[in-house]
Simulated scan of single mutants.
Amino acid sequence: MPPRFADVDAYLAALPTDSRAVVAEIRRRIRAVAPPDAVEEIAYQMPTIKLDGKNLLHYAGWRQHVSLYPIPAADEALRAEMARYADGKGTLKFPLREPIPYELIERVAAALVEERR
């Protein structure tokens, strides 16, 4: 049975070293663009930002990549920039062997907030 995490800090502590720092920075970036009333918790055994009581954005660390779920509808320019990282329906996958596009992740989070509001 996979581990159950009490909170995002426990999730981060359990990550492989290679992805822990990256996921921590993703967390910081998402929280910077999320509204003050957004709530952080564990859902589906991954860090989740909730807004207005509903899941807004999930992020997760793996051995070789980090992922964000879901993909916002977004404008054409943002969709084009996300296309390189799209992996299946509703998932963005960022390989750890490449520089992580933190600014893109911020824009994705902001687009999801805008869609919700």
Rank of each mutant, 00 (worst) to 15 (best):
I26V: 13
A80W: 00
D7G: 14
A21N: 12
P99K: 06
A21F: 11
D52N: 14
E41W: 03
L56T: 01
A10Y: 02
T17V: 15
L112R: 14
D9S: 11
P16I: 08
A14T: 05
E40W: 08
V23Q: 08
R28L: 11
P99S: 03
I49E: 03
L56S: 07
V22P: 12
F5W: 09
I30A: 14
A6N: 04
P101A: 05
G88H: 00
R31E: 14
A32P: 04
P99H: 01
P36R: 14
E41A: 15
K93C: 05
R20L: 05
D75G: 12
E25V: 09
Y69N: 11
A43W: 07
R20F: 13
L78H: 09
A111D: 02
K89H: 04
I49Q: 02
E115Y: 07
P36C: 07
R29L: 12
I71P: 00
A21C: 12
Q45I: 00
A80T: 06
R84W: 10
Y69V: 08
P36A: 14
E41C: 15
R79H: 02
D87I: 00
K93H: 03
H58G: 08
R107F: 01
Y59V: 02
D75Y: 00
I71C: 06
L104Q: 09
Y85Q: 08
V23T: 10
M1T: 12
A6V: 10
A77N: 07
L56V: 04
I26R: 09
A109V: 01
A109P: 05
R63N: 07
G88F: 00
E106M: 06
D52P: 10
F5D: 00
S19D: 12
A34V: 09
E25T: 13
L92W: 01
L51S: 14
I42S: 09
A111H: 00
